[in-house]
Nucleic acid binder design. Sequence first.
DNA 1: GTCTATACTCGGATAGAC
DNA 2: GTCTATCCGAGTATAGAC
Lengths: 207, 207
Amino acid sequence: MPPRSETSDDDAPIGRRGSYSKGVARRQEILDRALEVFRERGPEGTSLRRVAEEIGVSHGALLHYFSSREQLLLALYEHTEKHRHDLRGHEEMARQGAVGNLVEAAGVNVNLPGFVQLYSTLVAGALEEERTETRDYFIRRFERVREQTADRLRRQQEAGEVRSGLDADKLAALLVAASDGLQTQWLLEPEVDLEGTLGLFTELLRP
Amino acid sequence: MPPRSETSDDDAPIGRRGSYSKGVARRQEILDRALEVFRERGPEGTSLRRVAEEIGVSHGALLHYFSSREQLLLALYEHTEKHRHDLRGHEEMARQGAVGNLVEAAGVNVNLPGFVQLYSTLVAGALEEERTETRDYFIRRFERVREQTADRLRRQQEAGEVRSGLDADKLAALLVAASDGLQTQWLLEPEVDLEGTLGLFTELLRP
DNA sequence: GTCTATACTCGGATAGAC
DNA sequence: GTCTATCCGAGTATAGAC
């Protein structure tokens, strides 16, 4: 679900007339260069105009492909998330419990404070205006994460690993909320024990 | 702990030479007018310059009393928090359990979405720079709220209302985190049941 | 569709008048 | 200490060239 607005099907490298539209490739190219700049200097303090200059396009041209600074940061977020996702073992991930999954994700994030901060900035931005792409993106994201977590919980309830009689959907929202909130506290005070505190849920949910 | 930088003791209305320094009064006057503007138009989209013009001071003068837009928003937040605090019954509040207290606070916030959003904006801003007043403010705030919550929890553990064997400090951090995170989700999707979901902790913590 | 040029408002810093 | 004047770079919107 990339932030590019329309171009929703451009997949056949051969045969389809036009194949990749040149614009998408150009956009990708610009994004790649921009990611490099962010990697070196970090997103904070790196203005749109600075990035544009550094990667050799005009300020206006950059804005042509990313309609706002927020959009560019969202693209950066998505890219980092993919990388972060790769850091985790996919096989084990699948059959993990809800709490274990969140704890492990938090463990990965501990090494990526910049990522957590970017997340927080984008979410706060999403709350500030009514109908933006960023807002839609995070609404969908929360829905997805809650749903996955609820599924895990239900499976664990059936397996007797988690106490039953609790609304799995509400519980999932609570777990995700706690995870997000804790990471905020952790960014402000690194001595907060992210994984240990989140792990309390293991005991709280024991049947 | 108001955001005014130095002037830390100006309390005696009589006898002390100079009594209130004129600057403090002026600052308060400007703040009051600014609060009015925010009440009418909301903080988002209300620029420093617009506020200044509307209350009849220059852009520079406003910046003289509030060294940044963030400082002004923080003052707005503190003022609203005081008002919000008044909405809650102080007597009952004191002898409430940890979960009940958070649930009730959330219940008040449900009628003040702008306040929750402002909180989220300020917290995100606090995460973005290293040594700012806003950051210090929220570090202290989280410490205070966690401590209060932990105290309640300990009292409840001794009274047998909350299951023991759980680290009250960690548990407090978890409760506060869940409360914050849920309010974020609620701002994005109002159908999220803020009080009900947070109330799950009542069952989770039962001995 | 791709991009340049321009203009507007914004937050913030500075220098200096009073 | 209080405030005006000015300047800077930022994000964004628009018109229009190609």
